[in-house]
Design a binder for these strands. Structure first.
Lengths: 181, 181
DNA sequence: GCAACGTACATGACGCGTCATTTATTTCCA
DNA sequence: TGGAAATAAATGACGCGTCATGTACGTTGC
C-alpha cells in the first residue's frame, strides 16, 4: 500500500540521516506518506474533474473557472487583468486560454474605450449555455469525490490549511530568495 | 479576499434555492469558500513546485516522480506497467513522458527477455545525477510551502482526508455511472 | 496450431501551460 | 512637452496530457 519515498528520495542512502546540504532536511516517514497521499489525491481529483467536464459539456476545468467569473459579474464582462487577478493565472496562460475560448465562441472581445491597450472579455450566449449545462454535473462530481467524503469540520479545516499555504505562496512570491521565518 | 462562487455558479439566480435538476444541490457559502481555497492552493502550489524544479535542475515534477520511483528500486529499473501502477498515470501519458525523458538522457530502454512486448526503463547516470541535484531544493520548497505552515496533526489529518478522497476516486472509477451511497 | 482475445506499449493529433519576447498604449516626471 | 518606464495584452516555440488508435506479442480455447 505504501508508496515509495517521494520528495526526499532515498538518495543519500537509507541509513544515513544526513540532511541535504543546501536546503531543508529530508521528509520523515510520516511526512512522506502525507505528501504522497496529497500529491496523488490532487492529481487524480483534478483529472476526474476534467474528465467529467470534458465528457459532459466539452468544457475544461479552466474554461469553467473563466466562465464562472464572468457569470458572477453583473455585466458578464471583465477586463483580462481582472480575470487574471481573480484566477491568479499567469498572464500568457490567460491570454492563450481566452484566445481558444473565443475561437470556440464561449467568450467574445470588445474594445475598451477607457484604455486603448485593453479589452473586455464578454460572456456569449453560447458560453452561458455551456456553463449552465455543465454546472449540475460538475457540482455533482465535486460533491461526490470531495464533500461527501468529508465532515463539516474537516472541510473547514481544509479551507484553513489551504488559505495558510496560499499565504505562504503569496509571501514568498514577493520575497526574493532568502528564508521565510 | 473572498472569490466568487465557483462550482455552483450563481446560475439559477442568487435567491432561488432550487437544486440543480440532474445532480447534487449547489454548494453553500462555506463549501464554496473551501472549494475555491483548495482549488487555488492546489494550482498555485503545483505551479510553484514545477517552477522551482525547472529552474533548479531542468526537471519537471513529473520527471521527478518517475526518477524517484526508479531510484527507489534496487536495480534502478522498472517495467513501464510497474511505473504506471506506482504513479497512477494514464498509460499514454507515461509512454509519452518516458519517450521525452529518454530523449533527454534521463532514462534508457532495455529489452525484456521474459516478455517480448515489454521493456525495462533504466535510470541512467545522468538521471541519477539530475535527481540528486534536484532533491534538496525540491524538499526545501515542499517544506517551505507545505509542511512549515502545518502542524503535525494537521499534516496527519490532511493525509487521512487525501486517502479518503482517493478511495472514493478508486471506487467510482470502477463503478459504472450510478450514485455512490 | 490457429483464431480470438487480452496485454504492453507506441504514436498522431490536438488542446493546454510556460517562458521569452513583442506591440501598443498610458503614466510619470524632469 | 518629450522621453523613459510601466502596464495591458498577444504571440511563437516548445514541452505536457489526453483521447483515439495502432502494433506486436502473449494467452487461451477449441
Amino acid at each position: 500500500m505504501d508508496g515509495p519515498s517521494l520528495p526526499g528520495p532515498s538518495l543519500p542512502g537509507p541509513s544515513d540521516g544526513a540532511a541535504p546540504g543546501r536546503a531543508a532536511r529530508w521528509l520523515d516517514a510520516d511526512e512522506q506518506r502525507a505528501w504522497r497521499a496529497y500529491l496523488s489525491m490532487q492529481g487524480r481529483l483534478a483529472a476526474a474533474l476534467n474528465r467529467q467536464l470534458q465528457l459532459d459539456s466539452g468544457l475544461s476545468l479552466a474554461d469553467y473557472e473563466v466562465l464562472v467569473h464572468l457569470t458572477d459579474t453583473p455585466e458578464a464582462r471583465l477586463r483580462p487583468y481582472e480575470l487574471q487577478w481573480a484566477l491568479q493565472w499567469e498572464q500568457s496562460r490567460l491570454s492563450h486560454h481566452l484566445t481558444r475560448m473565443r475561437r470556440r465562441g464561449l467568450v467574445d472581445r470588445e474594445e475598451c474605450s477607457e484604455d486603448g491597450r485593453g479589452a473586455f472579455i464578454v460572456l456569449t450566449e453560447k458560453g452561458r449555455q455551456a456553463i449552465t449545462t455543465a454546472a449540475p454535473g460538475h457540482v455533482g462530481v465535486v460533491r461526490r469525490f470531495f464533500f461527501d467524503g468529508l465532515s463539516r469540520e474537516e472541510v473547514a479545516l481544509l479551507e484553513r490549511l489551504s488559505t495558510r499555504i496560499l499565504d505562504r505562496l503569496d509571501d514568498t512570491d514577493a520575497t526574493p530568495e532568502g528564508d521565510v521565518g
